[in-house]
Design a protein around this nucleic acid. Structure first.
Lengths: 252, 252
DNA sequence: AAAATAAGTGTAAAATGTACATTTAATATC
DNA sequence: GATATTAAATGTACATTTTACACTTATTTT
C-alpha cells in the first residue's frame, strides 16, 4: 500500500491530470454573508456579530462564512443561520454576489449575500451566545466592515420592494400579532405613515388574516385583537400582487 | 537580484506568509454566464454559442467565461458581452449566483449569471463571427448544457417581473419604433394579448414617448407612426412603478 | 364618575382600469 | 379610377380601486 499523506485539496485540483481543461484559471475564496432582519414589535432590527479575525477584529460585521468544499451556497447560508440562531426553515433569499477584487483586504473573496427574515422573539429563546451576536435598530446600527453596509442598503431596498407587493413581512412577525403591530412594521419599513382605516381595510381584504378571540393589552387600554396568518392562503398568495402600499412610486 | 521564475498565483496565495488567516479555506472557480435577450420586432430571442471544450463540446450554451484574477464580476460580464457583440453600455443586471457543487462536471464552478437586453439590429451590424453565436427564438431554443436552462428560466421570470412595473423593455427596441411593435414585444414577453386601445392609452400616459413625423410602412399599408423614447424622462422614471400590465397577478 | 388612550369602523369623491366598435390612411386589385 | 383590403388610430360608458377624512368604543387610570 502506498504511503499515505495529506494533499491539500487545491493542489489536487490544480495538478491532477483528471481535469486538464480548467488548469489555467484562477480560483477564489467564496463566502456567504447574511443580512438578518428582525422586528421587535416596534422597530426593524439587524443581527450583527463582532469579527473574530484581524484585520478589523472586534468591529461589527454581518454573519458570514466561507463556502465549504462540497457545500451548496444556499446550504452554506442556512448553515450559518442555524449556527447563530438555532432556527431552521427561516425565510432566506439570495440578494446579490459582491465581487470587487479589493473588498476583503486579506485576499480576494467573492461574497454571495443572502437576506433572512426572522421572528425576533423566537430567536431570543434559542440564542447561541458563543458568537456574541447582537440586535441593532436598523436606524442606529454601527459601522460595518468591508462592503457590508452596502449589502445592508441593498437588502433594505429589496425588502421594501418585495414588501410593497408580496406578503413577505409576515415572516418577521410572531404567530399572533395585532393589526396596529403590522401597521407599525409597514410604517417602519417604508419610513412613512399610513391612514389606519385604509391600511386595515387593505390588509383585511387580502383574506390572509384569521381573527382570534383574545386581545393584546400591552399596548393599549382597549386592547387590540390578535390575528393569525392563514398559512394555506399565505403560501398560495405569496407570489400574487397584493398592492400593499398606497404610493409604491415613493419606494427607492 | 534573485532568480526570476513564475509562481502560479494560487501557490502564492496559499503559501505566502503575508496572509495567514484564510489558508485553510477551499478556493473555487468562478464564472459569469450571460443570458442575452434580443427582440427582432416580432419575437423574443436568445443569443447562444456552441461550447468549445469537452465535455459537451458543440452543445449550445450561454455565453460565459471564468472570472480573471483581478477582474470585478460585473466587469467580466461586460467583457464577454463586448467580445461577443462589440456593444458597450448595454443593459446588464445581475440575476443570481448558481453554486450547486456538481453543476459543472469537470470541476466545481460557481457561476454568477447576468442578463442583458440588446437591440438585435445594432448587434447584427457588429457581430463577432469568431464565436459562432446564433440567435434563437426563445420558444424554440435548443437544449443547453449544465444548468443553463434553469438560468434562462429565471431570467425570463425576472424580465417579466421587471417589465410589469418598469419601462425596461425599451432596452430591446431600436431608437425608432412603433406602438404596435411595442405591443408585440409586451405580448411576446407576457405570452398573452392586450386590447390595443387600452395598451396604447397606457403607454401614452407614461409620457415617455415622443411621436415622430415619419411612419413605418413595412408592416401595414396605412403605416404606423414612429416614436422615440424620451431618454431624460426614461432615466428619471426607470424606478417608478408604471403598472404596464393589466393583471400582474398572472405573472409567474 | 370623569379623563385618557388607542382600537375600530363608514362614506363619498376621485382616479384608474376594463370592455368594446368604428373610422382612417394607404396600397392593391379589378 | 372605383373598390377592396389591411392594419392603425381613436372614444365612451361602466366597474373597480384608491383616497381623504372623523367619530364612537372599550378599557384603564385618576
Amino acid at each position: 500500500m502506498a504511503k499515505k499523506h495529506q494533499i491539500p485539496f487545491q493542489e489536487v485540483k490544480l495538478f491532477s491530470i483528471a481535469m486538464p481543461k480548467y488548469q489555467k484559471q484562477t480560483r477564489f475564496l467564496v463566502a456567504v454573508d447574511c443580512i438578518i432582519f428582525g422586528f421587535d414589535g416596534t422597530e426593524l432590527k439587524l443581527l450583527l456579530v463582532q469579527r473574530e479575525l484581524e484585520p478589523e477584529k472586534g468591529k461589527w460585521s454581518l454573519i458570514g462564512s466561507f463556502i465549504r468544499e462540497e457545500e451548496d451556497i444556499e446550504k452554506g447560508a442556512n448553515r450559518i443561520l442555524n449556527q447563530m440562531t438555532g432556527l431552521e426553515g427561516v425565510y432566506l433569499e439570495q440578494l446579490h454576489a459582491f465581487g470587487k477584487p479589493d473588498r476583503d483586504p486579506i485576499e480576494r473573496t467573492i461574497s454571495v449575500a443572502y437576506f433572512a427574515l426572522i421572528d425576533i422573539h423566537q430567536y431570543e429563546r434559542q440564542l447561541n451566545d458563543e458568537y456574541h451576536a447582537e440586535w441593532f435598530p436598523i436606524k442606529s446600527a454601527p459601522r460595518l466592515i468591508f462592503d457590508h453596509e452596502q449589502m445592508v442598503e441593498m437588502a433594505k431596498k429589496r425588502l421594501r420592494y418585495k414588501a410593497a407587493f408580496h406578503p413577505i413581512l409576515f415572516e418577521l412577525l410572531p404567530e399572533k400579532f395585532t393589526v396596529p403591530q403590522l401597521q407599525n412594521l409597514y410604517e417602519g419599513i417604508f419610513d412613512t405613515v399610513f391612514d389606519k382605516r385604509n391600511f386595515s381595510r387593505k390588509i383585511q381584504s387580502t383574506n390572509l388574516l384569521i381573527k382570534q378571540k383574545d386581545k393584546d393589552k400591552e399596548n393599549s387600554k382597549k386592547g387590540a385583537y390578535y390575528y393569525k396568518l392563514d398559512k394555506r392562503k399565505y403560501a398560495a398568495n405569496f407570489h400574487a400582487f397584493l398592492n400593499f402600499i398606497p404610493n409604491p412610486d415613493n419606494i427607492k
